[in-house]
Design a protein around this nucleic acid. Structure first.
Lengths: 343, 343
DNA sequence: GTCCCGCGGGGAAGCCCTTTCCAGTACCCT
DNA sequence: AGGGTACTGGAAAGGGCTTCCCCGCGGGAC
């Protein structure tokens, strides 16, 4: 019992002062500890199974060893892959990751930022498409300002929206590339499962896709751009509605993979064959895609690397100047769900 | 600048003592603060955007507000679903979750326990099948002892192995139920993708499955119990080997879903039809299953609830007596991947 | 043989809170 | 009117660690 072992116990036991014990264990900068003392301290610490109290260290040093990660839903493969990257990078940097999953509730985001502010986390990584919701974004911006005033840095994954460093995913360009690739495979009558109207990532992908097709002379009829939730079930729903209204379509672009997966399920349930009757493409290349049937065409985003990049960005000492941006390109990957029609 | 706002700043600004400010903001037990003072303090805190330093509070109170979660791989849907449950329960309890993902490296586990010991986390949830590896388990046990000596509690998800409170998943029984259900559908020639030999969860599922079949008079030929990794790629590999060696099988039980998914992919790549030529069943009912083809028969484990239960177990004040156990039953779910053969 | 300098040990301050303990006030009861 | 009680504000003591600063000591330089 007697609670955790403290440094003073170690010092006393080793017959040295607190200061020396601290320096021996920590290897203080610009100070050295005589070898025999250091070894004695280390041995004592080991014997007593001493583990420094990170909270006390944080207080004394004025700096913690943890970073925060805010995602919409940790059970969603998109987020969990990014989380894996963050976790990896954090471990490399010797930091612990505090996970916050908002369950798609925007109001939770600033609340979690506050929690992390209290923890005095070194940095926060905020992942997930932002909404075009001035009030919510203002809340978030304000919380992040508080956080940074408390000494933390922030990196966003998604849009460069909140005046902070960001890993920017080239949604628009990726979607445009996909549109051109599909056009190249002979598709002409496009429909879009567009996600929520005010979801910025969804919007960028929609417009990138649409603009490219307009340039190619096969614009998307706004009637077949379906609004729906950004989730698997949203895709399912959207696809049902789309197929009910306008069956005259040869390919459907869902603005993310989980929606595309839902769309395929909806098509199957309605007896519409994919890709026989209609092709489907998604966006992100989440890891679970490799095992769905038909294999889904998509725009590959290196999610783990995105997580790593965001972490490194947040941790790199801020010059306090312009918000920095790291751009990540998507790569079009065409698979069975959109076979070549020109043949 | 000037770093984070402190309580003394708030107190000074509000014209009260530190003690009063603390009590006003915190609502201390068995003490009251006069209304006008409290309001003044609160208003000042709000105006100054004061956020208490959780590390300092932890020191003063001798208790932190975080719990640790150790998983094998956060990008694996099995773990991320449990993580979602943990995250949910933690939020309810007003605690932050520190995430550690070991990437299937056993030696990382005790290291993460140590990190959490330093953080003085309230509790640790360790998720993921343990190995029958005395040395690794000893390490882990010892680390957990250190952690508990520092005041934390522990809950395990999986086997009741390390003398700590556990959420025990009835692997053996679930697998036996599945075996009987498959037998009931007319399957007779069973094979097993058995996972690693020393993986306890895998072993329990293997033996539960095998024993039930022996009882039914259709024992599994040990030659068709294939050892492989506990991952999707392990399942892929194992299935390849299995199909190469012994094609005379009508159903394959993979000891977890991701392996089953890999197995289906392998079958497809080898031109073996599932379920036409061979049925496949898994275990866990991970959320991504709903969209693979054919829909996979499995044993459903309520993963989110498991996460919640583990968290609540860890947080429930320990009577310091026997390790407590919460048992979770699996439910057999038969889908397209194992159609009825008796018809 | 002095004088300095640098090295390294240890005392103590300080990080930001909570909580105990003391003291002052107001009020009630007799 | 005096004494007790209830209430509440504030001073101060931690809590575990880092680090500044002082000081003693040994060695190099002249």
């Amino acid at each position: 019992m007697a609670g955790p072992v403290t440094l003073s116990q170690v010092a006393r036991e080793a017959g040295v002062s607190l200061a020396t014990a601290s320096r021996a264990i920590n290897g203080s900068a610009n100070r050295t500890v005589r070898d025999d003392l250091r070894e004695r301290v280390l041995a004592t610490a080991e014997r007593l199974r001493y583990f420094p109290d990170a909270n006390a260290q944080a207080m004394a040093r004025g700096q913690t060893t943890s970073i925060g990660l805010i995602v919409h839903d940790i059970a969603d493969p998109y987020f969990s892959s990014i989380a894996a990257g963050v976790s990896l990078a954090a471990e490399r940097a010797g930091l612990a990751v505090t996970l916050a999953s908002t369950q798609h509730t925007a109001s939770r985001e600033p609340r979690f930022v506050e929690v992390l502010t209290r923890q005095r986390a070194r940095a926060i990584i905020v992942v997930g498409g932002r909404l075009d919701d001035a009030e919510a974004n203002d809340h978030m911006r304000r919380s992040l300002v508080d956080f940074r005033r408390a000494g933390g840095s922030v990196a966003l994954v998604g849009q460069p929206l909140l005046d902070v460093d960001s890993v920017v995913i080239e949604n628009s360009r990726g979607a445009a590339d996909l549109a051109r690739a599909l056009h190249g495979r002979g598709y002409r009558r496009f429909a879009v499962l567009g996600g929520p109207a005010n979801h910025l990532t969804a919007r960028d992908r929609r417009t990138g896709f649409g603009d490219a097709l307009t340039e190619l002379g096969t614009p998307v009829d706004p009637a077949v751009v379906v609004e729906c939730e950004f989730t698997r079930d949203g895709g399912y729903d959207g696809m049902r509605r789309l197929l009910a209204d306008s069956p005259d379509v040869d390919v459907v672009f869902a603005v993310n993979d989980v929606m595309a997966v839902g769309a395929i399920a909806a098509a199957r349930d309605l007896g519409v064959s994919v890709p026989g009757d209609v092709g489907v493409a998604g966006f992100d290349d989440i890891v679970t895609l490799r095992d769905i049937t038909p294999a889904l065409s998509t725009v590959r985003i290196p999610l783990i690397e995105v997580g790593v990049a965001a972490t490194e960005l947040a941790l790199a000492t801020t010059s306090a100047g312009e918000p920095r941006q790291v751009h990540v390109e998507g790569t079009v990957v065409l698979r069975e769900s959109t076979p070549d029609r020109t043949a």
